[in-house]
């Protein structure tokens, strides 16, 4: 299926466990450090759901190579459009961890200032954020601003019409957008074979005139390289790209899911053997790029992050019911103002 410049390679792009020698040690260690943070964040957030302190948490355990690579490749002026499974990436981008879990804690729908971090709200309706990413990229391009936008999406999301419309729009307008599909094998319970009959999700790019890139999503170095190339191309006016990162969701869909109903334990055990975090650590140690002190420091930083999340979640104030009405409209219509007065007057509040 290869041969056309828009088609991906047959085998996913990979750098770990290959003969690749041109590896930037400093960059690799930074990817490792970010993955350790993301993994610890996933573990802590999942633990908080079990304690009832978060309503729900869609874990990205097993997919941290993508979160690390993407956040490292994005420039400060770039924008990130995450899905609901990308809280760890949002935290790595610099958003306060407590603000990052606001949606999942349930005190509000969203917690951070998108403009301050250049991170859009977590998108729950599948693929809808990809069109927003195109619009923002289009507006930035019209303004002459050299920035790129990275839209994350899952394998299930590629079945949605909005994904198709967004990639097509980006291609037509040559918008500086990188669509990164985290193919983790399942859309909740439904395997990829029921989402797509395409040779790969990256193959979908050619249908829009967009280059498709297939990458080993459990190889942080490879993901970083292809994302960095795509973002650079986008910033220089080269147009959008579609990247499929093949990875695996080690955890259930959320804490409310029972993954044993749709996938075998052996499959998960096999996926754990390909866990991107120990894989990178092993690789870096073998090359003498990672020492015990660095590993310890990464672990200490991760524990500090987890502690911040644990401790500050306990401190957060309860939401004010009057906030239900505050931001619905810039100019509150009279019928809504009337309801605010009703709520404010209720004794039970």
């Amino acid at each position: 299926m290869t041969g056309h410049p828009l088609l991906p390679t047959d085998a996913p792009v990979s750098l770990l466990d290959t003969a690749e020698t041109a590896i930037d040690g400093e960059l690799a260690v930074e990817l490792y450090r970010r993955m350790v943070l993301a993994r610890r964040f996933n573990r802590q957030a999942t633990a908080l759901t079990l304690q009832g302190r978060l309503s729900v948490y869609p874990s990205s355990a097993g997919q941290e190579a993508v979160a690390a690579a993407v956040t490292l490749a994005l420039a400060e002026e770039d924008w990130l459009f995450p899905t609901y499974r990308d809280t760890a990436a949002v935290v790595l981008r610099g958003v306060d961890p407590v603000q990052a879990v606001t949606l999942l804690r349930g005190d509000w729908h969203h917690g951070w200032d998108p403009g301050a971090h250049r991170v859009a709200p977590l998108a729950t309706p599948l693929a809808t954020q990809t069109a927003h990413a195109v619009g923002l990229a289009h507006a930035a391009a019209l303004a002459g601003d050299d920035l790129a936008v990275l839209a994350l999406i899952g394998d299930g999301g590629t079945s949605e019409g909005d994904f198709h419309e967004a990639v097509n729009l980006a291609a037509v307008f040559r918008s500086p957008v990188v669509f990164l599909v985290q193919n983790n094998g399942y859309a909740i319970s439904v395997p990829l074979s029921r989402q797509s009959a395409a040779p790969s999700l990256a193959h979908k790019g050619i249908g829009y005139g967009v280059p498709g890139v297939l990458v080993d999503g459990n190889d942080a170095l490879a993901v970083h390289r292809v994302v960095d190339e795509a973002l650079t191309r986008a910033r220089r006016g080269g147009g959008p790209s579609l990247i499929e990162a093949r990875t695996y969701r080690i955890d259930p869909h959320t804490n409310a899911d029972d993954a044993t109903r749709y996938r075998a334990d052996e499959e998960v055990a096999e996926a754990r053997r390909r866990d991107p975090l120990p894989r990178l650590e092993r690789h870096l140690r073998e090359r003498g790029l990672l020492d015990d002190a660095t590993v310890r420091a990464a672990s200490v930083a991760a524990e500090a992050l987890a502690a911040v999340l644990r401790d500050r979640l306990a401190d957060e104030p309860r939401p004010d019911p009057a906030d239900l009405f505050t931001h619905v409209y810039a100019t509150t219509p009279p019928h809504v103002a009337e309801q605010r007065r009703v709520l404010t007057g209720e004794a039970g509040r």
Partner: peptide, 8 residues
């Protein structure tokens, strides 16, 4: 959806 991103 594009209009949303443009408004952002």
């Amino acid at each position: 959806g594009m209009a949303v991103g443009m408004a952002m």
